[in-house]
């Protein structure tokens, strides 16, 4: 990277981020009715998701061989990952808003990276409603699935949530970068992020071949499906390799690197076109 010298250290960046988030929360809290209603509605949105899954299972006892508790484990882990990325990284999508409003320039005039500034300045604690809801579902699912819990399995659950968070975070940054090239088309990103969240609620084996291949590349399959297969002692009927369950951290790293490269090239493009 060209623009590293003179920039703040990681510790300094953390301080800047924390300060920005603090300021944001103080500002939001002045409109607390709205803040609380939004948080509740995030909770309700997630709650209705899981209600829909339970309703499906009131009509069938199994979905592609998965019980409701097993699907709930899948849902709990992937939704928690997504909710965390929604709280901490989805602010990247405000790039489109600022580009359209002409205020993105301001971010480039600071001695700090625009992504850090966006994630701090636009921080939306109200999205935490979904985190709470996901944790509740996950807690119930962990007690209901037929698994003899041991340390490796517990570690796998924690890892998959972290990996999922990083993958979804990478997808947020990646899709938000679209705005640098086509500010209007950015909403297509929703089909990757929110669509990705929706896909990972279900065992991927129910989808047709092309969609399964797509989510393996994108790489939503590593968010919770592959590790959950391992935790539940199941095999992918379509025969994906067993080591996929452990590939999460590497896949997450690759996602971050790709997202980072695309984001920076987006900023370069913005600076060279002045759009």
């Amino acid at each position: 990277m060209v623009e590293t010298h003179g920039g703040p250290t990681v510790a300094e960046q953390a301080v800047i981020w924390r300060r920005l988030v603090g300021a944001r929360i103080r500002a939001d809290w002045q409109y607390r009715t709205s803040f609380i209603t939004f948080m509740v509605s995030q909770f309700v949105a997630g709650f209705l998701d899981i209600v829909a899954i339970v309703i499906l299972f009131s009509n069938v006892d199994r979905l592609a061989g998965w019980s409701v508790a097993e699907v709930a484990l899948l849902y709990g882990t992937s939704n928690l990952s997504f909710a965390l990325s929604d709280v901490f990284v989805s602010e990247a999508e405000f790039a489109a808003h600022h580009i359209r409003a002409g205020s993105f320039d301001r971010f480039l005039l600071r001695p700090v990276g625009p992504l850090l500034l966006l994630c701090g300045q636009e921080f939306a604690l109200r999205r935490a409603g979904k985190v709470v809801q996901s944790v509740l579902v996950l807690a119930v699912a962990l007690t209901q699935v037929p698994v003899d819990w041991d340390l490796p399995k517990a570690a796998m659950v924690v890892t998959m949530v972290a990996v999922g968070f990083v993958i979804f975070g990478g997808l947020w940054v990646l899709t938000s970068s679209i705005a640098f090239w086509a500010v209007e088309a950015r909403e297509v990103a929703n089909s990757v992020t929110y669509g990705g969240n929706f896909v990972t609620h279900y065992p991927l084996e129910i989808f047709s071949g092309w969609l399964r291949r797509l989510v393996t590349v994108v790489p939503l399959a590593f968010v919770s499906y592959q590790p959950t297969l391992w935790v539940l002692g199941r095999r992918d009927p379509h025969g994906s390799p067993a080591w996929f369950a452990f590939a999460g951290p590497l896949v997450a790293l690759a996602t971050v690197l790709v997202a980072r490269a695309v984001w920076f090239s987006g900023i370069r493009h913005y600076r060279s076109t002045g759009s």
């Binding site: 500010v183 088309a185 909403e187 297509v188 089909s191 669509g195 929706f198 989808f207 047709s208």
Partner: peptide, 19 residues
């Protein structure tokens, strides 16, 4: 742009739900 993006997203969600 927004219209196209919206229709695209609706289609993707339709596919997932259909499966």
């Amino acid at each position: 742009g927004a219209t196209f993006a919206g229709a695209f997203t609706n289609t993707v969600f339709g596919f997932i739900q259909a499966y």
